[in-house]
Each structure stands twice: as structure tokens, then as C-alpha cells.
Write a protein that binds this DNA or RNA. Structure first.
Length: 551
RNA sequence: CGCGGGGUGGAGCAGUCUGGUAGCUCGUUGGGCUCAUAACCCAAAGGUCGGGGGUUCGAAUCCCCCCCCCGCAACCA
């Protein structure tokens, strides 16, 4: 890694503004923001932006159903989302909404730029129409019986039972989800983005280090099938931005959603007095990273870079996809109490414990990660309390009782300290490459070493004999210094514990390089427990609450 | 049906690219310590690496077939 300080703009995918944040969402926000915290700890400039994805048919219908204006619904959801994130110690530099004046401006200008450059076409298509609700119906808003396997209650685009794909008109007894009536069909003129104009650029782009190879492999399918025009318009009634010069036509939610990254950053720039173009112009020196779920890879790796390229902006440096969350090895389920909302977790359990648990399981790939609640309890208690905090806990008592809470002027074992620093280089590389689980394993290996060291030196014996008092002082001071190194390595994951550890140690906020110099002859505060163990009953209460509040 | 990813002791994972007697943590069992939040240290038991076939002196690792799980399939987002 070079000493040159980097400038990074990082995003997480926009959560949809029709429901609360749940544990599945948090995999992504935690992965992203821990990566950002690491970058800042290294001294890099790292701006983390996100927003609510506030447009589309489901939000329009949901608002209608609840007797609200869409604006009222998305305002309410925005408040809940930001509170949940904040309580999970997820700090955005900007958390905005796609229903903003900035986003309208960018969506319109990008559209017009694409149009000017000949990348927009118009075509009339035939589409399902609900005559009672007076609206066109997306495939997902039509249900019926699968024509192949006869499974009932299937969506209009594919059968979940047999996996067949078809169009809504193939369904047996199709009905509109909105009105319950059989849908009719109508013609409508739509605006399309000519994705194929960017085939060469995208083929080039999807190779190399822009994304994980497994995502690149998947994208090959799109090229093999031939890139088609992408329908970016929707007919009124639609909750979104009206297309300039096309009355009754609105931008499809997936057109303006990624543009929301730009709008959110624009908002940040206004607040901070920064120059937006510096990060977004073609050939910008800023690095731009998108963290996303594996389900939306093609939006971010095909449509989005093509839109950017076609309208004169820079393209992303890389797109990082992660897997999904399972609970107990299965998809989250409301009836099993495993559909866990962020708020429900916060009502019962420490957010840092989830931060640690996810981090301990996240790798650089797209594999799903599994939350096993039994494993969770053992894991956080053993790693965080038993191994890590224990190091400070077992040394602090001697320092307080015998040595005026002041660290010795010498380390007992400089070689061991040096070894911790050496491992830090590997840990930093793991964070950088999103090999979080490997980083945590390495850190806990060091915690084991620290405990073994204290066990071998036996300060509780040394302290009893006048002749070995100094040695006891050095050993305990060494222990506290090793603890200080470890909390530095854990700081991206456990920001609150890090803050309290800094108070305990009476030191300024730690940076990654702070630990190059050990603390010597330094007074510390009286040790207070930094974390409390989780109890099974808390987890049970949380699961029970999840069952109840989803009924 | 197609495409991509995955299946490793009871649990959670590493190892697979670059074949060479299966490794880590938790849990369990036995011992030790008593400074520490019943924390910590030492040791042991426990796996035919989803199934079958093949290549090889040798396969978790390479090839083929099958089963199961997750995702995608351009109008849910």
C-alpha cells in the first residue's frame, strides 16, 4: 500500500422506502461502513453516501393503502431508516432520498444527455392494464396459475414452483393484484435506453478488477443473449419524476435510483463546500465503489456504467457484491421469528455484537452468510468478552492496586509487541480486500497469544514477591499495550467500544498507525467492563418479539 | 429448462486457483490456574470433505453425471 492518501466515494445500495430495515439489509450497510471506517482509520478521505429509494409502483400503492400521500409515507420511512442506521452505529456522510430536487435535476440532465447522444429510442409496446384501477400493471402485479406446473398464485413473470419463465398472458386465470380483476391489454409508447450502444465498453469493463469474477461470469449470459434496449419509462399513474417533454411518462425507478448516489453526494458537497465534479468527472482521481447485494448486480454493472459513460461521467472503480443473510440456515421467515427487524434487535441486543458477528463471517465473495443464534451467543461471548476484553480486565486490577494506574516505562516483551504490529499489516490487507472474516480470525489469534503470554508470566504470582514487583508491572503494562493494539484493529467494527477504550486508556482517538509507538509511563483510568456477555434469554426474547410484531 | 454461486467433524468457517497422510474457532470431555465478566491455560474425543463414476502412484482439490440450497432471467425493487 502506498503512502499516498486516497480519495474514495463509497455507496451502499439504496433501501426501498416501503418498509423497515431488517437484518438482511444490515449485512450490506455494515460491510460498507466498516470498510469506510477502516479507510478513514488509515488516513484516507472516504465519503460514504446513501439514500432511500423512494419511487415506484409499490410505494404508490402502499401509500394509497394506508391513506397517505406518497410523500408522507417516504418521509416517515426515512425517519425510521435513519434512526435504525444511526443506532447500529452506521454513520453516513450523507443519507438522502431519491425524491429530491437534486436527483430530479441529475435524472433529467442524464436523460437529456443520453438522448442528445442518440442513446434513447421510443417504441410502442403492449402491456397488461387494470381497467378498474386505471393503470398499467408490472408483471409482478399480476398473479395466476402457472401454465406449466399448475402451481397457483404465481407472479406474472416466472413460476417459483417449477422455475419456468413466461409472460403474464400465459398465466391461467390471471388477476390484477391491485383490483383483483382480470387484466386487459393496452398499447403505450415507451422510452428505451439503447444498452447495445455500449457493448464494447461493457465487455471491456466487466473483465478485469471491476467486479468479482463470479459476477463477471454471470454477466457473460447477457452478452451471449445480446444486449437489448432497456425500458426506462412508466406510464402515469406512477410515483416518480415525469420525463421532460413527455407528459404522462415517468422515469422508471431503476433509472433514477443509482443517480441517487450522485444526488446524495451533491447534497454533501453543498454542505461541505466541495466540488462535485472532482469526484464524478470523466478521468476523476477519486475512487468510486458501490457495495450491493448479488441480486442487483446487473443494474450496477451494466445499465449504470453505460448510463454514466453515455452522459459523460466517470464510471465506477469497482462494484462489490455480497450474498444474502440466512437465519438458522434458511431464508428469513416471519412465522419462525427469524424475520428480524433492525429495531427489534436494538430493543434486545447490543448492535456491536451483530457488527462483530457479521464481520466474523463476511468474505470477499458472494456467498450467503448464515446467522445461527446459538453460535452467535457463544461467538461474541467467547471472542469479545472472554478473549479480547479479558486482556484489559485481567491486567487493569494489578495496575490499579499496585502501580497507581500507571504503565511501566518498559515493555516486558518488545518482540511480542512487534509481532502484533507485523500481523497488523496482514489485517489491514484483509480489511482492504473485504476479507473481514480472515481479519477477525487473525485478530482473535492475537488475543489468544496475549492471554497465553499473561498465563505464562503469571503476574498474580510475581506481584506477591517484592523482588518481582517490577516484572509484574512490565507484564501488565505489556498486556494493556497489546489490548491497545487489538482495539485499534477492531475499531472499524466496534466504534463504541473503541471510544470507551480510548477513555479507559486516556488517549486521543486511535488511528491505524497510532500503535507503532507503545504507551509507556502513561496513566490510565480505572477499568470498567467494556461489554457485557449476551444471555440466551435476550436472544429468545428477541425472536419472540420478531414473531409477535410481524403477525 | 438455462446461467452464476454454494454444499467440509454437533455448530460456524478455512483449505479447492498452484492435487501429497483434513485445519481453525465454538461446543463436548478430562486436567490446570485462580489475575480476569463461571473469564484464562493445557490436553483429548469427534469428519469415508453432498452422492456416484473417472483421471492419477496419490483427489476436499482436476474431469463427467446426479441430488440439495441461494441468486438471476431485462416490466418487483
Amino acid at each position: 500500500m502506498s503512502n499516498e492518501k486516497r480519495k474514495l466515494l463509497v455507496t451502499s445500495a439504496l433501501p426501498y422506502a416501503n418498509g423497515p430495515i431488517h437484518l438482511g439489509h444490515l449485512v450490506e450497510y455494515l460491510q460498507t461502513e466498516i470498510w469506510c471506517r477502516f479507510q478513514r482509520l488509515m488516513g484516507n478521505t472516504c465519503v460514504y453516501v446513501c439514500a432511500d429509494d423512494a419511487h415506484g409502483t409499490p410505494i404508490m400503492l402502499r401509500a394509497r393503502q394506508e391513506g397517505l400521500e406518497p410523500q408522507e409515507l417516504i418521509d416517515e420511512v426515512w425517519k425510521n431508516h435513519t434512526r435504525d442506521f444511526s443506532d447500529f452505529l452506521i454513520e453516513f456522510d450523507s443519507y438522502y432520498t431519491t425524491h429530491s430536487p437534486e436527483n430530479r435535476k441529475f435524472a433529467e440532465s442524464i436523460y437529456q444527455e443520453l438522448k442528445k447522444n442518440g442513446h434513447i429510442s421510443k417504441k410502442t409496446i403492449r402491456q397488461a392494464y387494470d381497467e378498474e384501477a386505471e393503470m398499467f400493471l408490472p408483471d409482478r402485479f399480476i398473479k395466476g396459475t402457472c401454465p406449466i406446473c399448475r402451481a397457483e398464485d404465481q407472479y406474472g413473470d416466472a413460476c417459483e414452483s417449477c422455475g419456468t419463465t413466461y409472460t403474464p398472458s400465459d398465466l391461467i386465470d390471471p388477476v390484477s393484484v391491485v383490483s383483483g380483476k382480470a387484466p386487459a391489454e393496452r398499447d403505450s409508447e415507451h422510452h428505451f435506453f439503447k444498452l447495445a450502444d455500449f457493448e464494447e465498453m461493457l465487455k471491456e469493463w466487466t473483465r478485469g478488477d471491476k467486479m468479482q469474477p463470479e459476477i463477471g461470469n454471470k454477466l457473460q449470459e447477457w452478452f451471449d443473449a445480446g444486449l437489448k434496449d432497456w425500458d426506462i419509462s412508466r406510464d402515469a399513474p406512477y410515483w416518480g419524476f415525469e420525463i421532460p417533454g413527455a407528459q404522462g411518462k415517468f422515469f422508471y425507478v431503476w433509472m433514477d435510483a443509482p443517480i441517487g448516489y450522485m444526488a446524495s453526494y451533491q447534497k454533501y458537497c453543498e454542505k461541505q463546500g466541495l466540488n462535485f465534479d472532482e469526484a464524478w468527472k470523466k478521468d476523476s482521481e477519486w475512487e468510486l465503489y458501490h457495495f450491493i447485494g448479488k441480486d442487483i448486480a446487473y443494474f450496477h454493472t451494466l445499465f449504470w456504467p453505460a448510463m454514466l459513460a453515455g452522459s459523460g461521467y466517470r464510471t465506477p472503480t469497482a462494484v462489490f457484491a455480497h450474498g444474502f443473510l440466512t437465519v438458522g440456515g434458511q431464508k428469513m421467515s416471519k412465522s419462525r421469528g427469524t424475520f428480524i427487524k433492525a429495531r427489534t434487535w436494538l430493543d434486545h441486543l447490543n448492535p456491536e455484537f451483530l457488527r462483530y458477528y457479521f464481520t466474523a463471517k463476511l468474505g470477499p465473495g458472494v456467498d450467503d452468510i448464515n446467522l445461527n443464534l446459538e453460535d452467535f451467543v457463544f461467538r461474541v461471548n467467547s471472542d469479545l468478552v472472554g478473549k479480547f476484553v479479558n486482556i484489559a480486565s485481567r491486567c487493569a486490577g494489578f495496575l490499579r492496586k499496585k502501580f497507581d494506574n500507571t504503565l511501566s516505562n518498559e515493555l516486558d516483551n518488545p518482540a511480542l509487541y512487534e509481532e502484533f504490529l507485523e500481523e497488523g499489516k496482514k489485517i489491514a490487507a484483509c480489511y482492504e480486500n473485504r476479507e473481514f472474516s480472515r481479519a477477525m480470525r487473525t485478530i482473535m489469534g492475537l488475543a489468544d497469544k496475549a492471554n497465553q503470554y499473561i498465563d505464562e508470566e503469571k503476574p498474580w504470582v510475581l506481584v506477591k514477591d517484592e523482588a518481582t514487583q517490577d516484572k509484574a508491572h512490565w507484564v501488565c503494562s505489556q498486556g494493556i499495550n497489546l489490548f491497545r493494539v487489538l482495539i485499534t484493529y477492531l475499531k472499524p467494527v466496534l466504534p463504541d467500544t473503541a471510544r470507551r477504550s480510548e477513555e479507559f486508556l486516556k488517549i486521543a482517538p486511535l488511528q491505524w498507525d497510532s500503535v507503532l509507538t507503545p504507551l509507556k509511563g502513561h496513566e490510565i483510568n480505572v477499568f470498567e467492563p467494556l461489554m457485557n456477555r449476551v444471555d440466551d434469554s435476550q436472544v429468545e426474547a428477541m425472536v419472540e418479539a420478531s414473531r409477535e410484531n410481524t403477525r
